[in-house]
Write a protein that binds this DNA or RNA. Structure first.
Lengths: 114, 114
DNA sequence: ACAATACCTGAACAACTGCTCAGGTGTTTC
DNA sequence: GAAACACCTGAGCAGTTGTTCAGGTATTGT
């Protein structure tokens, strides 16, 4: 009996493995959570829940540099959490879809318990 | 006119700031997303969605060491994503509440689009 | 055309993360 | 009680992250 057969939960293991048949989806899903898992980026998303904002607005709200905001916005854009609208020399950001608000609400419900 | 008053979005900034009146909640929320934002931990949670599992089961599913699993379980436990049940020398882990499944489902919906 | 504004980019850095290794505790079996 | 098992913990490490700095582009105003 080798190490992987030692204990008797082969059935549970087979069942559990089915939860991640598509490794690519798992990685994308993790990336989505990860992007919301940083206080700075979460604050940006929370702010955009209320108002459309330009880079300097966000920098003012967070107290970090324009450059820092710009880097984070690129990430949020890549993962399709935010979209942007150019108006002259300014770029206005807003949330890209309604699932993000749902995600925040469900998360708040978990944190709020107890 | 100083730098922070330069542009004319003071109203938007005031509105957006209201979204994070409680900084402690923001940090807790970010921690919750962060813990799901790592592929290894997300896989653990996905697996536990299907079956109650012990440490060695999880290690077998993920292909990492018992020790690595143990470290991650402590984190998941601290953030109340999982609970544990001792049975002899084994420890069985399962999800702690139903919001976690909701979180995963909403996340999948976001990732699935396009 | 020049200066100011709003934003973006690459490089660099300190801080943090996930993992393994070595060694530990508690439980079961012989 | 000794050996085997299931799990936990602290230390250490390579890789990643968030931020700033310096310098870049595009747009506007004079």
């Amino acid at each position: 009996m080798n190490k992987s057969e030692r204990h008797s939960h082969q059935q549970a293991i087979r069942t559990a493995r089915k939860a991640m048949t598509d490794p690519e989806t798992v990685v994308s899903l993790a990336e989505t959570f990860k992007v919301l898992g940083d206080p700075t980026r979460l604050k940006i998303v929370l702010a955009l829940l209320r108002a459309e904002l330009c880079v300097l607005d966000i920098a003012a709200i967070l107290g970090i540099s324009e450059s820092g905001v710009s880097h984070q916005m690129r990430l949020l854009k890549t993962l399709r959490l935010v979209k942007h609208r150019k108006d002259g020399k300014m770029v206005f950001y807003s949330l890209d879809d309604e699932h993000i608000e749902d995600l925040i609400r469900v998360g708040e419900r978990h944190v709020g318990e107890r």
